[in-house]
Computed example of a mutant assay.
Amino acid sequence: MNQPDRYQAGVRDVEFGARVKIVEPCNLYGCQIGDDCFIGPFTEIQKGVRIGARTRVQSHAFVCELVTIGDDCFIGHGVMFINDTFTTGGPARGRKELWRETKIGSRVSIGSNATIMPVRIADDVVIGAGSVVTKDLTVAGTYAGNPARRLGRR
C-alpha cells in the first residue's frame, strides 16, 4: 500500500505586524499581516498576500496568492478569493502566468460566503453575504447578488 505525501497546516514565513491575533488551526504562509489584525480559525492565507492594518479575517476564509487587502477591512466567514479564471476552459494547472490579481481597498466589508473573482474593489464598499463579485467595483456603495450589483450609496 502506498503512503501519501503529508502536509500539515501551520504558520510559517509570515511577516506579522504588532498585536496580531490568530486562532488556530489555520494555514498562513509567506504572507504579510498588518498591525492589530485578527485571523480566525480554519483560514488559509497563501504566499504573497498582503493584509492591511486592523483587518479581520473570519473563520473558514480562503485568501489565495495575488490578493491584497487594505486597512480596516472585514472578511466574513467562508469568503473565497479566486485567482484562476479558467481562461483556457479549465484550471491553470500550475501555470501561474494565467492567474489574475485582486486588490481590495480600505474599509471594505465582505459578507459571509461571498466569492471574489480577480477584481479591484474601491474603498468604502460593502458586499452582501453570498455575493459573487465578477467585475471591478469602482464606486463606494453596497453591492449584492450573483453577479454583485450596486444597491445604493454608502
Score class of each variant (00 low, 15 high):
Ser59Met: 12
Thr88Cys: 01
Lys21Cys: 12
Leu98Val: 06
Glu97Arg: 07
Val14Lys: 10
Glu15Asp: 15
Leu151Pro: 05
Gly76Phe: 08
Cys64Arg: 04
Ser109Leu: 02
Lys21Gln: 15
Thr87Trp: 00
Phe74Cys: 02
Gly78Asn: 07
Gly141Asp: 05
Val139Ser: 04
Thr87Pro: 02
Gln32Thr: 15
Cys26Arg: 13
Gly152Ala: 00
Asn83Asp: 09
Val57Glu: 10
Lys135Asp: 08
Ser131Arg: 06
Glu15Met: 11
Ser106Gly: 06
Arg107Asn: 12
Gly78Cys: 09
Phe81Asn: 04
Pro41Asn: 14
Asp124Gly: 01
Ile127Trp: 03
Arg107Pro: 00
Lys103Gln: 10
Thr102Phe: 01
Gly70Phe: 00
Arg93Met: 11
Ser59Lys: 09
Arg56Lys: 15
Val49His: 01
His60Cys: 12
Ala18Lys: 15
Ile82Thr: 08
Gly78Ala: 08
Thr102Val: 05
Arg120Gly: 00
Ile110Val: 14
Asp36Tyr: 08
Arg6Tyr: 14
Asn27Ser: 15
Ser131Asp: 08
Cys37His: 10
Asp124Cys: 02
Thr55Tyr: 00
His77Asn: 09
Val126Phe: 02
Gly89Ile: 03
Val67Asp: 02
Val67Phe: 01
Phe38Ser: 13
Val20Cys: 15
Asn83Val: 04
Cys37Ile: 11
Pro147Ser: 05
Gly10Ile: 12
Ala92Gly: 07
Arg149Ile: 06
Thr68Gln: 12
Phe74Val: 06
Val20Lys: 11
Thr87Leu: 05
Pro91His: 08
Pro41Ile: 02
Ile69Leu: 06
Ala114Met: 04
Asp13Ile: 07
Thr142Ile: 11
Glu97Leu: 00
Arg56Asp: 10
Val133Ile: 08
Lys103Trp: 00
Ile116Val: 13
Arg100Ser: 10
Val14Arg: 09
Ile82His: 01
Tyr7Asp: 05
Ala144His: 08
Gly76Arg: 07
Asp124His: 10
Gly152Phe: 00
Gln32Pro: 00
Glu44Phe: 04
Cys73Arg: 03
Val67Ala: 08
Ala18Asp: 14
Gly128Pro: 06
Asn27Asp: 15
Arg56Ser: 12
Ile51Ala: 01
Val79Trp: 07
Ser131Trp: 05
Asp123Pro: 06
Val139Asp: 06
Thr85Asn: 07
Lys47Pro: 07
Ala18Gln: 15
Ile121Asn: 06
Gly30Glu: 12
Trp99His: 14
Trp99Tyr: 14
Glu101Ala: 14
Arg154Asp: 00
Ala92Phe: 02
Ile127Gly: 09
Pro25Asn: 14
